[in-house]
Structures are given as structure tokens and as C-alpha cells.
Design a protein around this nucleic acid. Structure first.
Length: 492
DNA sequence: GAGTTTGAAACT
DNA sequence: CAGTTTCAAACTC
């Protein structure tokens, strides 16, 4: 990254994580405004970025260290896939019949906030939404950096789909589920590709993947010739519309499920394979640890693993190597599974969204989207979802007797000295005051300053100073509120 | 490993 | 929407 990009990056990172610490920068105000808008999830009255590729390309640096420039894509996000899905050859996040404007940068319809979430979620437990970046070209999808060895190139005209003579079908490319979730171009899922559509260039990348060793549910060890298997699969996916796995000539198991099952990438990797991947490199260990963790086997006995009680189901995974009884959360029961997913979404459209928000690098921070409701654990046991996620409780929580907040050693000792630790102490972390609303409001103020500076035609330096001054005022207000709320608490 | 506790999810 | 039940994980012994 050059210096300017570096500055943009750090500013965006700070904003997207709500830390509200602007970096030094040299942008003019419109650019600043643009950056701020991209770095936050939503700013009232401010439109989201839809097309600025040059800004997106620095996003992968936000939380991944180091992040190879690879193509990412969404996975394990049931709602987007399931409900929008009507065809095996439909774009998942993008428009179903979007064209491929030559050389035009695109990002599959993800808004800036979604992009930020996607990127920041890469390293956060329980969140596995990835963004896809690159170019659509007249030859297919390309990663934005053509010099990258793992750039994915899926030529649309390589397809052998029977309907390829149709213009529409030619536009519906199989690139929609092309994932690199290891950060090294090693894991790929093609959800909307028939086997003979898997591009040769992709195969080359996939050859670097450790081969699955065992067969259990989705991990196929059947050894069919590509032609035989391909034909069989093509028939299946056409006739049933249900997810299938496919083992390529390269020995890689693909999940060829329709859209809702993109998340089954997890299951296409046998545990042994994950271990192998973990051993491959330390630098990517974080995400792999998450993977392994997310695949903790469940022990469900009554829910058929089709309710959110089941961790696998809630994570968007099918059960694999679990100890559950009467499990329906597998590829053999796709109908029931789909119905269960739909039922969950009917009850709660956000049922499958990650519960834990973004984290800061290294210093584990984040927030529970709904907050916990603990009553007896003091939020200091793993019963508490916040505690389990290693995050502090916030004002969103409705817990009673919470002790899951930042505390100094002296506070800790005073806690120990308390005769009855079950008594309700209402103290919370001061940082709990910095809610998403506060962050949003602050960003709105900064935006307003940037816009004003732009309107007045001030120099970049002047605009910068205005924004920083505004930021200082915001911080002052936040600190005042914290003191105020604490004094109220203490007086109560 | 069996039994208990806990809190989220599901249900009423 | 509040109260109750069900469920599976966390915890204790």
C-alpha cells in the first residue's frame, strides 16, 4: 500500500470498529467524507458506496494480518441465500441477471457497511461472511489484482450448460461461490457450477489443498472418474436441486449445493483436513482455529439438530462428526433442513446472523448484537454468550448481577472481598456507553464537518482540522456522558 | 459419566 | 410481549 492508501485504511479501520480515532491523513474533504461513509455501517442521509473499487481493495487489510489478496465471497449466511434462491444459476448476492460489463469494477451488490462487516468478521468468531472483490471482464470474473497467483478466472464461455446459448444463462456465471476462506487461495467452493464448469485455472489452485482423507456425510471418498461423477452430479443437481458434493479429478471435494448451502464449505472439509491446514502455516492460524471451533460437535438429542439450540445448525453448518441423535441437519434431509431454516427465519429474520459484532485486532473487543440475559451466572461463566465470546457486556444486555465488565485489579480485589457475590451490582464498563448509535452519531457529525468544508471550498488541511476539532468535541461529550452515568449509578 | 444449573430458543 | 417450557451446553460432583 502506498502512503495514502495506508492512511485511508487506518481511518476506515478505526471508524468501522467504532474506536473513533482518526488517523493522520491528507485527503481532501470529499474523499474524507467518502471514507467515513464507507467505514461505518450506516449514516442517515448518506448514501452507501456502491461502486468504488479503489477503496474496496484496501479493505482486506483491516483485520487480516497478513491477508493475501484473494477473492472472498459470502458464506454461511442463510437468509441471503435461502430466500433469494430460485435457481441453481442465480447470483446469490448480486442481481440474478446482472450483466458482465467489461472491465468494470464491481462488488456483488454489497453495501459499504456490509463490506466492512464482511471484512471485519473474517477474524471474529461466529461470523463468516466474506466479500467478493474483483472485476467482471468479458472473460469472466477476475480478482482485482491480476498479478496475484490465486486470482480466480472463471471464463463464462467455458460453460457447457445446456442453455448456454441463452444470453441470460451466459450471464449467470458460476463464480458466485468461489471462496478462499483460508486466506491462501486454498479452499474453494463452487456452489453453482456443474462439475464440468470448474475452471481449469481454479483446479490448479485447488491442487494445493490438502486432500480429504475420511468419508463422513459430506466428505466423499468415492473414487469416480471425473467424467462419470460429473455426469452423475449434473443429473442430480438438475433433477433434485439439492446440494451434492463432487470430488474433482484433483481429488477435492466440492459442495455443489444450491445457494442456501454455501455455508457447507465447512462440511466439505473433513476435520483431518482442517488439522492439516492448521499445520500449514502459523500466520493463518487464527481463522483456522475459528473453523475448527465452529465445527465443535453437537450432542443434540431432541431437536433433530434443526433448531437453533443446535450449534451446528445455528452456525449454518450441517452436522459432521457430531454425537447427535436422530439428526436431520445433513445433506440427506435437505428438505426438512430447508424447512427448518425457513421456519427460523420466519420467527427471526436475523436468526443466522452472527451474534457477535466486529472485533479489534489483537485486543478482543466487540459486542453482542442482542445482548445476554443472564441472571445467575454474573456473566462470568460460559453460560453467558458475551463471556463465552470474550467480550464485555454492554448496555444492550439485560443481565442481572453482571460482573462481566472491564475492571482494574483493585476492582477485582474489591469484588473478591464482597461478602455476597450474587448481589446485583449495576456497574458497567464505561465503554458500554459507546453504543452503535453513539458511533453513528459521531460519524454523522464528522461527515457534516467534511461536507461543510467541501461546500466552503476549504483546503484539505483546513478540512482536516475542522473534522478533528469536531471529533474532539464528540469525544468530550462521550466522556461527559460516561462520568454522568457513573455518578448517577453511584448515587443510586 | 451422571446429575444439576444455566440461559437461549421455542412455545403459549 | 410476558411467562413458561424445552433444549443443549456448561458445570459440578
Amino acid at each position: 500500500m502506498n502512503e495514502l492508501e495506508d492512511q485511508e485504511y487506518s481511518y476506515k479501520r478505526d471508524l468501522s470498529e467504532g474506536s473513533l480515532v482518526p488517523s493522520h491523513h491528507t485527503h481532501d474533504s470529499p474523499r474524507m467524507a467518502n471514507l467515513i461513509s464507507h467505514g461505518m455501517h450506516s449514516v442517515p442521509g448518506y448514501s452507501r458506496m456502491e461502486d468504488d473499487y479503489t477503496t474496496y481493495r484496501i479493505l482486506p487489510q483491516l483485520t487480516c494480518d497478513p491477508v493475501p489478496p484473494v477473492a472472498h465471497f459470502s458464506l454461511a449466511s442463510y437468509p441471503e441465500y435461502l430466500l433469494a434462491q430460485s435457481s441453481h444459476y442465480q447470483h446469490v448476492l448480486g442481481q440474478p441477471y446482472s450483466s458482465w460489463p467489461s472491465q468494470e469494477a464491481f462488488h456483488y451488490g454489497m453495501s459499504s457497511g456490509e463490506i466492512c462487516r464482511a471484512v471485519t468478521s473474517i477474524s471474529s468468531d461466529g461470523a463468516d461472511v466474506y466479500s467478493l472483490e474483483g472485476y467482471s471482464t468479458d472473460q469472466g470474473f477476475r480478482h482485482h489484482d491480476r498479478n496475484q497467483p490465486h486470482a480466480l478466472h472463471v471464463p463464462p464461455h467455458d460453460q457447457k450448460h445446456p442453455a448456454e446459448t441463452s444470453n441470460i444463462c451466459q450471464m449467470l456465471q458460476p463464480v458466485q461461490i468461489v471462496c478462499d476462506v483460508t486466506g491462501g487461495g486454498q479452499v474453494v467452493v463452487l456452489n453453482h457450477c456443474s462439475p464440468d464448469q470448474i475452471p481449469h485455472s481454479l483446479m490448479m489452485d485447488l491442487n494445493t489443498v490438502s486432500q480429504p482423507k475420511t468419508s463422513e456425510q459430506s466428505c466423499s471418498t468415492e473414487d469416480h472418474s471425473p467424467t462419470e461423477k460429473d455426469a452423475r452430479h449434473s443429473e442430480k443437481i438438475t433433477s433434485t436441486g439439492l446440494p451434492q458434493t463432487h470430488k474433482t479429478s484433483a481429488g477435492v471435494t466440492f459442495n455443489l449445493a444450491p445457494g442456501p448451502y454455501a455455508s457447507q464449505l465447512h462440511q466439505t472439509l473433513c476435520p483431518t483436513q482442517i488439522v492439516e491446514l492448521e499445520e500449514e502455516g502459523q500466520s493463518k492460524g487464527r481463522r483456522r482455529v475459528k473453523w475448527e471451533k465452529s465445527k465443535r460437535p453437537c450432542n443434540c438429542t431432541k431437536s433433530q439438530c434443526l433448531k437453533l439450540y443446535c450449534e451446528c445448525f445455528a452456525n449454518g453448518d450441517v452436522c459432521n462428526n457430531c454425537k447427535c441423535l436422530n439428526c436431520y441437519n445433513n445433506t440427506e434431509h435437505n428438505l426438512e433442513r430447508s424447512q427448518a431454516i425457513k421456519a427460523c427465519l420466519d420467527r427471526n429474520p436475523g436468526a443466522f446472523r452472527p451474534k457477535i459484532g466486529s472485533k479489534k485486532q489483537g485486543n478482543v473487543k466487540g459486542c453482542h448484537t442482542k445482548g445476554c440475559n443472564c441472571k445467575r451466572s454474573g456473566c462470568l461463566k460460559n453460560y453467558c454468550e458475551c463471556y463465552e465470546a470474550k467480550i464485555m457486556c454492554t448496555s444492550t444486555c439485560k443481565c442481572v448481577g453482571c460482573r462481566n465488565y472491564e475492571e482494574s485489579p483493585s476492582k477485582k480485589s474489591s469484588e473478591r472481598d464482597r461478602p455476597d457475590s450474587s448481589i446485583y451490582y449495576p456497574t458497567r464498563s464505561p465503554l458500554a456507553c459507546i453504543t452503535p448509535d453513539v458511533v453513528e452519531a459521531t460519524c454523522g457529525c464528522l461527515l457534516a464537518q467534511a461536507e461543510e468544508a467541501e461546500k466552503e471550498g476549504y483546503t484539505a488541511a483546513h478540512a482536516e482540522r475542522m473534522i478533528l476539532e469536531e471529533f474532539g468535541q464528540c469525544l468530550t461529550q462521550i466522556v461527559r456522558s460516561i462520568f454522568k452515568s457513573n455518578s448517577v449509578q453511584f448515587n443510586e
